[in-house]
Amino acid sequence: MTSGPRLYAMVYAALLFLLGATFVIARVDLGAFNTVAALAIAWLKMGLVVAYFMHLRDADRLDAMLFASGFVMLLFVLLALTLGDYFGRVWLAG
């Protein structure tokens, strides 16, 4: 079963459950882990939407590669190298 209303309903239920989970976790003080947990859940939700609603599981390898390239660029290049500057200002200050 790769698609169909039943599967979509299950994915939808999982998404709502994750929304509830992230809402509840945010009410507990975990320090820095609040952000980690919130983002982990966001990634999980995105994974569900992409894999099932957008059918990336069944799509062309090309489409998957394209989509991944966007995230690689964003996370490992734009975000990482820019933050490298900002963290570096503390590490090598003086």
């Binding site: 799509a59 062309d60 090309l62 489409d63 394209l66 989509f67 390239s69 966007g70 995230f71 660029m73 964003l74 734009l78 975000l79 820019t82 933050l83 900002y86 963290f87």
Partner: peptide, 28 residues
């Protein structure tokens, strides 16, 4: 389909610039 996926890649980076700005200022 491939055309739309390519467009979404562009969108990832479009919002990505905002997310980067957010991350930087939240870090600061």
């Amino acid at each position: 389909q491939a055309g739309m996926w390519v467009f979404l890649v562009t969108e990832v980076l479009f919002f990505g610039a905002l997310l980067t700005a957010y991350t930087v200022y939240r870090h600061l």
